[in-house]
Simulated scan of single mutants.
Amino acid sequence: MMTAPGYTVTDAQFTRLRAMNLIAGIILFAQAVLISAAALAEKTPVLLPVTARFPGGPVGSAVIPQTAHLADVNLGVAVVILLTLSAVLRFAQLLPAVAGRYRSGLDAARNTTRWVEYSQVSAITVFLIAQLNGVTEVGTLVALYAITASATLFLALQESEPRGAGSLRPFVFGTMVGIVPWGIIAFYQIGAGTLGDVPELFVRTVTLSLLAVATLVWTNAWLGRKARRGWAHPHRVEMAQIILVTFGTTLLAGQVLTGVLL
């Protein structure tokens, strides 16, 4: 099988990418300001608990583990941090010191920064969605965060393989790891429904919609490495990535705003 042909990003294409990064950054930052205002206007902030369970008594005993309340995550503040982080990373692509490396990476069909950004955006998103679905134990939450971030970094590893003819093993391994947090979230959501405590519509909607966006991001990465038809040019893959990540973050912020803060 022949390797997919290489493509050089033209000046016009790179200008469009820079414009997209600027627009996405402005949209995300504007949302951060809006969510901040809504969160400050809330008399009672929406707090998501973080707990820890410590065993009591000898191993195998029937003693109920002790539960300690460690902290609370302010949902509004957490969403603002997520939006601001994503906006800053979008603006960073416009810096002269970064732009040259950004363009040369696209010419080689690589963009490690893209996956470092998404590893954090997706990990924070999964952390918050897990909390909304009733996951409170700190060990589980940290594990979900770490698994999601590490799964995304498999996509950075995938870009070391030749496009079109290279092995897709990093992508497959990343998919196998990345589906685990969503499976755990589904377990909590379905389990709650089985016990008669069905999660509210907002929680079910935000969970399914963000899962759909995550699936599209991974699909875009897969199509980009296959380098077929519209995804043969790295410029188009990058455009789709910017749109999807911005849309996903906006979707989370919008649903938190309308479903909780307002």
Rank of each mutant, 00 (worst) to 15 (best):
R103Q: 06
Q120D: 13
R110Q: 14
G139K: 12
A123M: 01
A146G: 05
R110C: 04
E117P: 10
V142M: 12
A151G: 02
W115L: 05
S122T: 15
V116P: 15
F154M: 12
A109Y: 07
L132D: 00
T136R: 14
A149W: 11
I129V: 11
S119P: 09
E137Y: 13
Y102L: 02
Y118L: 13
V116I: 05
T113M: 11
S150E: 12
T113I: 01
D107E: 07
Q131V: 15
T152E: 09
I147M: 11
I147T: 12
L106A: 03
Y118E: 00
L153K: 02
T140C: 04
A123I: 05
T140S: 10
L141I: 02
L153Y: 00
V142G: 10
R114M: 10
F127P: 11
W115A: 13
T112M: 01
V138I: 06
G105H: 03
V126G: 08
S119A: 08
L141G: 14
D107A: 02
L128V: 00
A108G: 04
Y145K: 11
V138S: 04
S104K: 09
L128K: 06
L132Y: 11
A130T: 15
A123H: 14
Q120Y: 10
T136P: 14
R103Y: 00
F127T: 06
A123S: 03
S104T: 01
N133T: 01
L144E: 14
V138K: 07
A143F: 04
A143P: 12
S119G: 04
A130L: 15
A123L: 08
G134R: 13
A123Y: 06
Y118M: 15
A108P: 13
V121I: 12
N133R: 15
D107Y: 10
L106P: 00
T112L: 01
S122W: 00
Y145W: 04
T113Y: 01
R110Y: 04
G139Y: 09
